[in-house]
């Protein structure tokens, strides 16, 4: 998190969607773009130049002002998943406050998922970020496909890894809001520990999440109306 000169009362928060190519990162942002009210978000910027650079990269800003008058600027990024963009992934990860790791849950993708998970840990470390303390959530996407892992296997995964695991069908918008909620909730808690958001800036968790999720289409999610409560 970057705290702009404390009297201007402005904070910038960075959340990165990381994962192998074609796992559904862009689809996540596209779905969020549809579901979030334009009054708290900007345009979805998608770089998908098909020239020799073939750089795939997305960014969407979300912003609001808290009742205590602090401007919160949240940016959602995706990394280019192609193997050759290793160094770009490292650059995008720089200074991130939380990560949503988007995996293709088909069994056939297990090896590449693991490779990108390790690649992410390495790149976090290169940026001086500690993956043990950084808020990370794992989204198991494409659960609609025949070869996808079942609920039982997701439970198995939950028992071996520390981050929460969320199922999703991003292409139908399922699990996308839940993933954002989970990652932002953890993100808030970690920032609160580091910067005393509640005490120093008077931004309680309910308000932080409420300011965003009261402007999100929550239909079809199991999220509490808590979102709306913060309004």
């Amino acid at each position: 998190m970057v705290l702009f000169n404390s009297d201007s009362r402005e904070i910038a928060v960075k959340v990165v969607y990381y994962g192998p190519a074609l796992s559904g990162k862009t689809t996540n942002l596209q779905s969020l773009f549809q579901k979030i009210d334009p009054c708290v978000r900007g345009r979805l910027m998608t770089l998908d130049t098909k020239d020799d650079r073939t750089l795939f990269f997305d960014m969407m800003p979300v912003f609001f002002r808290t009742r205590s008058g602090v401007k919160v600027k949240l940016k959602l990024y995706t990394v280019p998943g192609q193997v050759m963009h290793e160094s770009t992934r490292r650059i995008v990860l720089q200074g991130s406050d939380a990560v949503a790791f988007v995996a293709d849950s088909r069994r056939s993708e297990a090896a590449s998922t693991l490779a990108y998970w390790n690649d992410m840990l390495k790149n976090l470390e290169a940026n001086g970020l500690d993956w043990r303390s950084l808020p990370i959530v794992v989204q198991m996407n494409k659960r609609d496909l025949p070869d996808a892992r079942g609920d039982g296997e997701l439970d198995d995964l939950r028992s071996v890894i520390q981050p929460p695991v969320l199922p999703a069908v991003a292409i139908r918008g399922e699990g996308v809001v839940e993933t954002l909620y989970a990652v932002l909730q953890r993100c808030y808690r970690s920032l609160d520990r580091a910067f005393s958001l509640d005490e120093r800036l008077q931004i309680p968790e309910r308000e932080f999440l409420g300011q965003i999720f009261s402007h999100v289409d929550l239909r079809g999610t199991h999220l509490p109306a808590e979102g709306a409560a913060g309004r």
Binding site: R53, L55, F57, M59, S87, T88, R90, I91
Partner: peptide
Amino acid sequence: LIAAKLHIEAVRES
């Protein structure tokens, strides 16, 4: 700007 600068930063980083 992002397309151009990110490319440059990526090359520099590699």
